[in-house]
Amino acid sequence: MPLLDVRNLTIELETETGRVAVLEKVSLTMNAGEIHGLVGESGSGRSLLAKAIMGILDAKWHVIADRMMWDGKNLLEMTSKQRRYLMGCEMAMIFQDPSGSLDPVKTIGSQVIEAMVPNKNVPFWRRGKDTYLNAQKWLHKVGIKSPKSLMKCFPWELSEGECQKVMIAMAVANHPKLLIADEPTNSMELNTQAQIFRLLSQLNQLQNVSILLVSHELETLVQYCDHLTVLYSGQMMEAGPTAELVANPYHPYTRALLKNLPNYTGKMRHKSNLPTLQGSSPSVQHLPAGCRLGPRCPEAKRQCVKQPRVEHIKDRAFACHFPFNNEQEDDSAFT
């Protein structure tokens, strides 16, 4: 049984012109101990999907799904109190805007301690000191050089990178089963980014923590993730094991992302143009009909004005009328 199973999730947003589907029939399945990557351009709906899983919903959002199961429990039928319990113990999220997610009038130490669950195996008269020392330990693990002095600071006294490290410490301190990392190394220097990813890998390998890694940096996700899901403008383009998806992409958008990866072989001429898709992502008010990649897709044809159905080949999934590397596949392989 998968740890997380989301089927045909749609999020509709209320606007002045009516409801708009900002996320349309997206499915996601994660097993225990898996690192799953969500990749796509800004506005692709990655953060919306992550917040829907956590239950952090706005009053203007309307969430519709065939299934949202967490460890055998139906998330759609849970009360707000039950969802908050999951957020604090079994699920955790590293937000993209760390300084805006921290309380500016509380010290860092008080916020980290508030987010931690006291160890019940420690006598009650020692739990306060034990939690305080444990908070220092996690701040040190995420790269804070002077955790004791930093715990006395307020969020507005820290840089964006330091606030991000604090958010990561708060998220991983309770050893959650699922960690959702939305741009976890944003505003960090390269050495610290490597340290954070090593910490996430250790949590995954040593404590079997499942990680949903949200990023637009495909190169990083390819290095750390077991599976990838590619999103564009609220629609799922392709999903599957990372190695197979990189070696043999079916969707034109996936191929375009892979072509944009940095080339370190030195074969590219000086000042030559990088391969890119023409145009830009559509706005919420002007979403195209059918496949939303259609206006930018080099393989687009008249049939693309209709929404392609999601096809499955073994453990691969893609939504495209004209997929690549699929001419030789037998039609009986589709399910």
Rank of each mutant, 00 (worst) to 15 (best):
V39E: 12
S42L: 15
S42Q: 13
G43Y: 14
G43C: 09
S44R: 09
S44F: 08
G45Q: 01
G45N: 12
R46W: 05
R46V: 09
R46H: 03
S47H: 11
L48Y: 07
L49Y: 04
K51D: 14
A52T: 09
A52G: 04
A52S: 07
L57E: 02
D58N: 01
D58R: 10
A59D: 04
K60F: 02
H62I: 01
V63I: 15
V63R: 01
I64S: 10
A65K: 11
A65R: 04
D66K: 01
R67A: 02
R67N: 11
M69N: 08
W70F: 02
W70P: 02
D71A: 11
G72E: 06
G72F: 08
K73G: 00
K73D: 14
K73I: 07
L75H: 01
E77D: 09
M78A: 04
S80Q: 07
Q82R: 09
Q82F: 10
Q82T: 02
R83Q: 15
R83T: 07
R84G: 03
R84L: 14
R84M: 07
R84H: 07
R84T: 13
Y85E: 10
Y85Q: 11
L86F: 10
M87F: 01
G88R: 15
E90A: 12
E90V: 02
A92M: 11
A92G: 15
A92H: 14
I94G: 14
I94W: 13
F95I: 12
Q96F: 14
Q96H: 14
G100T: 03
G100E: 15
S101I: 05
P104D: 05
P104F: 12
P104G: 07
P104W: 15
V105R: 10
V105A: 11
K106I: 00
T107Q: 10
T107Y: 05
T107S: 10
Q111E: 09
V112A: 02
V112M: 01
V117P: 00
P118C: 06
N121Y: 08
N121G: 06
V122T: 13
P123G: 14
F124R: 12
F124L: 12
R126M: 06
R126D: 00
G128F: 10
D130Y: 12
D130H: 15
Y132K: 14
L133W: 04
N134K: 13
Q136E: 15
K137G: 00
W138L: 09
W138H: 14
L139D: 12
L139Y: 08
L139M: 14
L139I: 08
H140K: 13
K141W: 03
K141Q: 05
V142D: 05
G143L: 08
G143T: 08
I144V: 12
I144W: 14
K145F: 12
S146M: 04
S146G: 00
K148H: 05
K148C: 00
S149W: 02
L150A: 00
